[in-house]
């Protein structure tokens, strides 16, 4: 090894910041506990909502249609909880990828997120238009204005928020992708 590199190596090792390993260990244990607690709480909430939905199907439903609705809804919260629990665990596995695979994963993640918001925006627009048509029909046939105006107002606010979020992500995507690409350059 040449002397210059050796001197760099010594300087590098001596520049190690002071670390209180016991404090670090307790912080890391606390963080892990908080994360696990949150993950299990989310799972329990999903189970509780599904259980309530099943209970409602058996004891609270007034008609066959309501029973069928609750039965259909029952597996959704628990399935979502299990899926998000699994996703959360997999998130840690991506840290073992090599750097180029990690950056490619992050790139895909950003593109997928934009796709998700694009689809959500389109679905929200379709639902809003459908709601507006129903509101129009109800106004013309039954002259019920207030209820439908409230519905349109609330859903209009939700739709605006979704569109704004989508536009924001779309605008910032090229910059974010560039940052990731720059990371991979040597």
């Amino acid at each position: 090894m040449d002397p210059q590199f050796e001197s760099w190596q010594n300087a590098f090792k001596q520049a190690t910041p002071k670390i209180d390993v016991d404090k670090l260990l307790s912080q890391v244990k606390a963080s892990k506990f908080r994360q696990q607690l949150k993950a299990y709480t989310d799972m329990l909430v999903g189970v509780a909502v599904s259980a309530y939905s099943f209970y409602a199907a058996l004891w609270l439903a007034d008609s066959m249609a309501q029973t069928m609705l609750f039965i259909t809804l029952t597996p959704i919260p628990i399935a979502f909880s299990v899926w998000s629990f699994g996703q959360h665990s997999r998130l840690w596995q991506q840290q073992t990828l090599d750097i180029s695979a990690l950056l490619a994963f992050k790139r895909d993640e950003l593109v997928m997120r934009l796709k998700y918001w694009r689809i959500s925006t389109r679905v929200c627009i379709i639902l809003y238009v459908a709601l507006a048509i129903i509101a129009g029909v109800n106004y013309l046939l039954y002259n019920t204005v207030f209820v439908w105006l409230v519905q349109l107002g609330i859903n209009g606010a939700i739709l605006s928020a979704v569109i704004l979020r989508y536009r924001y992500l779309e605008q910032h995507l090229p910059q974010k992708l560039k940052e990731i690409d720059d990371m991979g350059k040597a």
Binding site: S7, W8, A11, F12, Q14, A15, T16, P17, K18, M183, G184, K185, A186
Partner: peptide, 27 residues
């Protein structure tokens, strides 16, 4: 903050090395 066990002269070299490393392209 860096290890207090080093002398101020060494500290200058170390700060410069770490600062220089942070200026390198990540790759």
């Amino acid at each position: 903050s860096i290890s207090s066990s080093v002398t101020s002269n060494k500290q200058d070299i170390e700060i410069d090395l770490m600062t220089a490393l942070r200026k390198l392209a990540i790759g």
